[in-house]
């Protein structure tokens, strides 16, 4: 039996069925991401001073990924328009471009951005020991300038065994620029171009440490929400890419030859999903990378 209303409009709704289907699905997606964003807002306004990190993500890479998603949104809508104009060749190329953009986005996220965080170490100092590490924190300077207190020392952990070995009594960290030179006014605000860890090594005794961890979800409410939201977003990108690959393969050419409008409608609904994924990223990018 043929599935009804794949290209013609259902008289009572005035729409072909998949169109309503995708919008109902997107409505549920709005609630899903809305829940996570409201959790983000709640965690953020509840964070004590100095406990919501800034400038830890790579802004140029994030900007590039934003641009890639936007371009893929353009290519998918052009793919759909090409089908509407019955230009299968153009459709094929636009679809390939969309898939490529999605794959680049995911690769950058999973092979570059996330692993860099997994390799970055943060050490929260006990409140009573903050004075001992003033040379790395510069809290007197921060207070004078009206900046939030600095409770954490970050950088690259040299003695990695220290994470699990209770016999090692201190962490040796190659400091990030802020902790290497905390009273430098240039470090007051995050920079567009990320600066790598310095050569300056600090030794931090474990007994002065509240807790220390790589930049994993457990590091802070910030990274927990970052990994949750970008992870779920990444799964959506992956889902979209898989659907697009199916529509790009020869199996869809057969559908095109039978009923091009049906394929165009399939591309339209998967495109709607893809635009939604882009739309979520439009909010994720400033909230996590910039603010």
């Amino acid at each position: 039996m043929e599935i009804p209303y794949t290209v013609s409009n259902r008289p009572d709704t005035g729409l072909w069925n998949a169109k309503i289907g995708i919008w109902l699905f997107l409505a549920s997606e709005v609630m899903l991401f809305g829940g996570l964003f409201s959790a983000y807002i709640f965690l953020r306004i509840d964070a004590p001073p100095g406990m919501w990190p800034h400038g830890l993500l790579n802004v140029p890479v994030g900007t590039m990924n934003t641009a890639i998603l936007i371009m893929s949104s353009v290519t998918v809508v052009l793919a759909w328009a090409s089908l509407k104009m019955r230009k299968y060749n153009a459709y094929w190329w636009y679809m390939l471009a969309t898939i490529t953009c999605g794959v680049i986005f995911l690769t950058v996220k999973l092979a570059y951005e996330w692993p860099q965080k997994f390799d970055h170490f943060g050490i929260y100092i006990k409140p009573e020991a903050l004075g001992k590490y003033e040379q790395y924190l510069g809290n007197a300077y921060a207070a004078e300038k009206g900046l939030p207190p600095r409770l954490e020392i970050t950088g690259h952990l040299h003695n990695r065994a220290a994470q699990n070995d209770p016999n090692i009594k201190e962490y040796e960290v190659a400091l990030d620029p802020l902790n290497a030179d905390p009273t430098n006014p240039e470090m007051d605000r995050p920079h567009f171009w990320p600066r790598s860890a310095t050569e300056k090594i600090a030794t931090i005794e474990k007994e002065d440490v509240q807790y220390a961890t790589m930049f994993l979800p457990r590091h802070s409410a910030y990274f927990a929400s970052y990994f949750t939201i970008t992870g779920l977003h990444g799964l959506h990108v992956l889902g979209g890419v898989l659907v697009f690959i199916y529509m790009w393969l020869p199996v869809s050419k057969r559908l095109y030859q039978q009923n091009p409008e049906h394929l165009a409608n399939r591309v339209e609904v998967s495109g709607l999903f893809w635009h939604f994924v882009d739309l979520v990223w439009i909010f994720v990018f400033p909230l996590f990378y910039l603010l």
Binding site: L15, I20, A27, M31, H275, L279
Partner: peptide, 25 residues
Amino acid sequence: AGLVAAIFMHLAAERRLIYRILIFT
């Protein structure tokens, strides 16, 4: 987000039923 929704997602000119779904959402 408004540009994406209005132009790419064709919400600038869509059927009333879709708007109703979105008002609920």
